[in-house]
């Protein structure tokens, strides 16, 4: 019973990592041309959160020796998760609410809390006793980081869906390209995927369940990451046939 789920989780993770690197590198190449913050932030976030975090934590969970490598993977995983979540929150603030005081405050508070959680998590890589303590995915430090990430994804998903509702009205007047409207919708789906992928382990932790073995949590996380991967691919590196379909059908909802 566990085997098909393990395979599904592995495939979903592999797709997530692969799409993360491809999309992230593409956005960073775009940022080199435009010299703009949003594409650079998103490129870094994709490379770190999708491309680097899962492999590093898998190394920490699977390998036993050399211990130095396991500790380096735990350190790198926490560093990548902290930095990736931070740039994701900065992206949301700068793109959607650049001039709003409450958004600036929310961003600063989130980054402060994230920084503390991240620093504690990275410190554990040096000071934790033994592999089981190193591998514990439900430490206070990691839960703090996961909460901040959850809030960040809720925020970006809400902003995307609100913007999408406005852009649909513009689309009806022929004032915007259907592909741009669809891209905003897909960004909302990516945000929603992040909400589920961060929220499911948090809910499991609150219920006192083990994130590593609780089947519904693992299944939900795998489905969320898979949906995020598909949405990221279609949003930032879509096949020409998909663009034709969106333009022809006005598929924005």
């Amino acid at each position: 019973m566990a085997l098909p789920l393990d395979v599904f989780v592995l495939v979903a993770t592999a797709v997530y990592v692969g799409v993360g690197w491809v999309v992230g590198v593409r956005l960073l190449a775009l940022a080199r041309r435009t010299r703009s913050f949003p594409e650079r932030a998103l490129g870094v976030a994709e490379c770190l959160l999708a491309g680097a975090v899962p492999p590093l934590f898998i190394v920490a969970q699977v390998l036993s020796q050399p211990e130095l490598l396991v500790r380096a993977a735990v350190f790198g995983g926490h560093l990548a998760y902290t930095a990736g979540s931070a740039v994701m929150i900065l992206f949301t603030w700068r793109v959607f609410r650049r001039d709003e005081g409450w958004a600036r405050t929310l961003t600063h508070v989130a980054l402060f809390v994230l920084g503390i959680g991240g620093a504690l998590g990275m410190a554990r890589a040096f000071f934790a006793d033994g592999l089981s303590e190193l591998r514990d995915p439900q430490t206070t430090a990691f839960l703090v980081m996961e909460w901040v990430s959850f809030v960040g994804f809720v925020w970006t998903a809400l902003e995307a869906f609100l913007l999408h509702a406005r852009l649909r009205k513009q689309l009806r007047l022929g004032l915007i390209d259907a592909v741009v409207v669809n891209r905003v919708l897909l960004w909302g789906v990516i945000g929603l995927g992040g909400v589920l992928a961060a929220g499911a382990p948090l809910a499991a932790s609150l219920e006192g369940l083990s994130v590593s073995t609780h089947v519904p949590t693992r299944l939900l996380c795998a489905l969320a990451t898979l949906a995020s991967s598909v949405a990221a691919q279609l949003a930032f590196l879509p096949p020409a046939s998909y663009l034709r379909w969106v333009r022809a059908s006005g598929a924005v909802a």
């Binding site: 956005l27 703009s36 949003p38 700068r94 959607f96 913007l163 891209r183 930032f236």
Partner: peptide, 14 residues
């Protein structure tokens, strides 16, 4: 105009 959200998402498509 400053970087409006719709302009950012237009650019992100490359």
């Amino acid at each position: 105009a400053p970087d409006a959200p719709d302009a950012v998402f237009r650019r992100l498509g490359g």
